[in-house]
Nucleic acid binder design. Sequence first.
RNA 1: GACUUGGUAGCUCAGCUGGUAGAGCAUAUCACUUUUAAUGAUAGGGUCCUGGGUUCGAGCCCCAGCCAGGUCACCA
Length: 566
Amino acid sequence: MSQQLSEQELVRRESLTKLRELGINPYPQALYPVTILSKAIKENYEEGKKVVIAGRLMSRRIQGKASFAELQDSEGRIQVYFNRDEICSEDDSTLYNEVYKKLLDIGDFIGIEGELFKTQVGEISVRVKKFDLLSKSLKPLPLPKTDSEGNIHDAFTDPEMRYRQRYADLVVNPHVKEVFIKRTKLFNAMRTFFNERGYMEVETPVLQPIPGGAAAKPFITHHNSLDMPLYMRIANELYLKRLIVGGFEGVYEFSKNFRNEGMDRTHNPEFTAMEIYVAYKDYNWMMEFTENLLEYCALQVNGKTEAIFGEHKVDFKAPYKRVTMRQSIIDFTGFDIDGKSETELAEWCKSNGVEVDDTMGKGKLIDEIFGEKCEGNYIQPTFITDYPKEMSPLCKEHRDNPELTERFELMICGKEVANAYTELNDPIDQKERFEAQLKLAAKGDEEAGQFIDYDFLRALEYGMPPTSGLGIGIDRLVMYLTNNQSIQEVLFFPQMKPEKKAVELSDAEKTIFNILKANNKMELGALKSESALSGKQWDKGMKGLSKHGIVKVEVDGDTKFCVLQS
RNA sequence: GACUUGGUAGCUCAGCUGGUAGAGCAUAUCACUUUUAAUGAUAGGGUCCUGGGUUCGAGCCCCAGCCAGGUCACCA
């Protein structure tokens, strides 16, 4: 879509032409021999050391024949000093006066050969001996400035623009870049932790014929040659367990999951989960594993186990408190759910301000109570254990109480971060639980599963060793480790509605356009009378069409024609 | 989905009961050889989100819509 260029964009395009006229290729095929990054220069300063660096020009302070600029590379900024006498011969100052001062702009990528020195005020700088344009920037970047007291002026903060133009956000906001560096550190830390224990990273299908392993609304797509619907995965659990059946001791996957549900500060349609399954373990073992894992991750990402999240200070140091769901509800309400019937639970809810409806079974009711009264109170990492059976269809029954399951969730700052089970491996029990879920779904519980994965049941029939599985919401964990309140801040490219709808014509424009389409070229007066538009509407329609570049008025002697542009 | 706040120059933001649209930075031209939010001078730059309406006159008021943020509801 063609768009009007701003003055500054036009100036940069002119510079492009002038550079070419001077024989400088603004987009060279350059293998540029960078020898050092800005951070290393500052950390290991050596007076007079020759360096070759490259990056974006981010600021300039020109003072006649001398000038200071800042070059930004992947690790930060370094000051560079341009002096006319250093880079130009006596009789030709073009390189400094024209190329550097006029034709380069903030945002351009340049390469610099020079040597290190310290200015009179002691700042480590590179004295430029030679520079090359590596890539011209045609669009002015947002330009936050930091003053001597560290205050940032003109910060690029509008979330909409930052998310839509993450590339610009990353260029000008180093703290944003830092979030994503930490995100990657978290992945690396988890991989290391798992790999050191001999567990294997695997991949399982994103396109699935049955969207299993969780209860959520899937995205549906269609495979043309198979002529069948496929679902984008909502979880990878059932596939990973198949691999445990196949004989792997421990498997894990970082999985992009897709859920066709609401979007808000904590939900993006695609998000990342880490799931791991380990054979011959139970959920008690997994709790210890999880707290050790998270302590290790926090250390690797932030260098310490404490993390600030909003008003809270969270400590990831193991071990974490463990509370059963029953005890938790007693703690916060005084109500003991043990042995209560569905009716008793529903009545308690109604008289205690917990919203319920008829579709809710026992498990769901308990979950509502917990969600309403307890969940939000757990700031420090806390394991909530022993969930009702009904809401955990893939989890093994509790060894001490058949109403419960061996399941835990890890709560941090009032939100769930991890979920784990002693996995159900009794194929007959599993089949019955799936069928119970189908009934719940029929009753109207949208969270209940609506499909039975018979292939998964077949796998279980071959036998799955006792196994414990854990899922961690990676995006949420990154939020905690980087003190971000919204998931958009920890995703490079959060889902957004499209910026602009396609050019739509107004009614007047459409009328004129349709008449003209039949004739291609018409005398203006004839076109106007055929359109039967009022003077104002006609004027508006014509102006609109010319603005979109759809029509053009041509003058031939005394006659004016309106011509349709292709 | 409900409520609420916002959308004005490349960026950050002002904008009077409704009367020709402002600032700082950025840009352009000039001066300036160790500055650092460099400085001084001059100049240019705007579909005021879109579409209707009220009005002699709308950036401002009214209606509808689009996009985004926040709160809540729903939901892992």
